[in-house]
Write a protein that binds this DNA or RNA. Structure first.
Lengths: 345, 345
DNA sequence: GCGGCTCAGGTAATCGATTACACGGGCGAC
DNA sequence: GTCGCCCGTGTAATCGATTACCTGAGCCGC
């Protein structure tokens, strides 16, 4: 493969001149044309490895996601990747599979590869490597999940308005015994969703007693199904259930079906996270949609700010209620958006 | 950040010695210990960029996938990533979004980054960059989709046995008017599935007339839905439909539901590709399961063979029928495997 | 007419590793 | 005792770019 020296020889100039032409610095039209001609003839492409060594910038970002097989994260990763690419960066994606050890292992690899910046949707909270990233001051952005003690901007969605709308929606449909299936203990974001929902319900004068709050051991359909079973076995079972993650919602749906109960007739079901599949379940599931692609884009922008040495604030984007049919039918207040059938950018 | 020179100074040896210790060549125990101590004290990590420049190996693989948001490819990407990682390679994933231009653009970027090898599940067939990859002889493996004219090993699944089982399954359940929704014209793999299914049906003395073969304009739920609409509008509508891709199957399911028809009562539905969600639809969908994770692993192994300069044959792994309830109930012949509820490795 | 300024472009240092080659000391063989 | 070999280690070239610094030509002003 041709290198810069070959180009220089062919154009009858020095390597410095070639480099300057290619980086848009100074040289005069006539020289420039000769260089560009040589580049074209040889099919020359700069060696990014050599460039990275010299400039200490790889134009590569890292993304460590907690579970790639969760469709929410898949879409997030896709959005991040597209935006990074649009801005001239490559992306290395690591899948931590909800394991803090694997996550640390990944971060290590990414640091070794001298990525310019890192985005992490952290599994667990006490990551030693995250601390290392901060202390090395490699630009870092937390995605979807804040981590206590890690001083880095966090990009995530917040459900206050959506959950307020949801409480109103449920109240209007006559639901009086709500329940919540929350994420495993220790994931701060689950707690927050629970609290916001509780407050929203209070605004409708609906109580959310402790026995109707169950915490799944993991973010999986199996966990969701077990929790739904527990709820339906209650002496006074709920008439509406919110699952704080899409996979748990899916398991919950299975359990309702397995019992031969009907949605929304016997129990309403709402998922936090709106994934494309929810429009295709039977019935289509009402969901709290996070602005997934916007989150991805915002994460990249925030990270680039950090990379360029500027301060960057955390970003909190509003989630929105997407009412479908799993709670019953109700005319939509005008500020709800319609369906989210195709959220592709 | 500490570099090899710092380590050398601290250990009182030359950089060559440090390098040799770290690469497991020669030096004697006592020196070795001093070097390792210095490495530990300084928290030294080799600069992989510098190493890549010198050795011309990046220990990075590239994967260009035709659509990351298709759960089949997500799982494939995840499997590839895990295996690559296990063998000490990083992976850069590119999402071509079924666009040949974007695919070429990606391949370009990956070549620029001097990846050691490339895996591509190609969108479309006439890729100029794929040709370039071959002519540069960068190790290449085609994934899931062969490309005519590109001399590279191809790793994919083959459905002969599964489709034979499917034909028997449908025959046993009394289905006599099968139909197929195939992938867009030009994707060789869709054609193959169609042919295998036709042959299998013939073995059961069931005909597959042309009017019951419809070709979707794209691999999407919308395309699948439109095709199902066409099939159901036929004067003699089918009593069993095979969709050759999971997204099209999903759209087909929507259409059946929208018409208030029942599955399997009114029409049976089978998907090619088994994705986790199919176990959760109503009814759970019978599917032809590709051995997705095995495909991913095989692709990585094949690629590494090529990277190490050895010849590597194409790999053809058998798909398997996973009967659920969307064709009706039938006792299972013993060679069918059970459900594929959790195919995570 | 000459000093000095501008500017294109060349020379060479540099990034951080790997590795070919050189060197010197110890040791075995004769 | 000397020759030569082996082995451990150091010196320096190298990968392919970027870029600080220098040089020399052209031009302007006084």
């Amino acid at each position: 493969m041709a290198n810069i020296k070959d180009v220089a020889e062919r154009a009858g100039v020095s390597v410095a001149t070639v480099s300057r032409v290619l980086n848009g610095r100074s040289p005069v039209a006539e020289t420039r044309d000769r260089v560009l001609a040589a580049v074209a003839e040889l099919g020359y492409r700069p060696n990014v490895v050599a460039r990275a060594l010299r400039t200490a910038r790889t134009r590569t970002l890292g993304l460590v996601i907690s579970d790639l097989r969760n469709p929410f994260f898949t879409e997030l990763a896709d959005a991040v990747e597209q935006e990074a690419r649009r801005l001239g960066y490559s992306l290395i994606i690591g899948n931590a599979g909800e394991s803090p050890e694997q996550q640390d292992d990944y971060i290590r690899t990414l640091l070794d590869r001298r990525i310019d910046g890192l985005m992490v949707s952290s599994a667990g909270t006490g990551s030693a490597m995250l601390r290392e990233v901060v202390s090395r001051d490699t630009p870092l952005v937390l995605l979807d999940r804040a981590v206590p003690g890690i001083a880095a901007p966090c990009v995530r969605a917040e459900g206050r308005q959506a959950l307020t709308d949801l409480a109103a929606h449920l109240a209007a449909l006559g639901r009086r015994r709500p329940a919540v299936i929350v994420a495993p203990a220790g994931t701060p974001i689950g707690e927050e969703r629970l609290e916001l929902f509780r407050t929203a319900l209070a605004g409708q004068r609906i109580a959310l007693p402790e026995e109707r709050i169950v915490s799944s051991p993991d973010l999986s359909p199996t966990g969701g199904q077990r929790m739904m079973r527990a709820l339906l076995d209650l002496p006074e079972p709920p008439d509406a259930v919110l699952a704080t993650d899409n996979l748990m919602a899916l398991g919950a749906l299975d359990e309702v079906r397995a019992r031969g109960l009907r949605i929304p007739g016997d129990v309403a079901l709402v998922a936090f996270d709106d994934v494309a599949w929810f429009a295709h379940t039977d019935p289509p599931l009402t969901a709290v949609a996070q602005p997934t692609r916007e989150l991805g884009r915002a994460a990249v922008h925030t990270l680039l700010e950090r990379i360029e040495g500027r301060a960057a604030p955390s970003v909190l984007l509003p989630a929105q209620l997407v009412p479908r049919r799993s709670c019953g039918e109700q005319p939509e207040p005008s500020h709800w958006r319609g369906a989210a059938h195709d959220r592709r950018q």
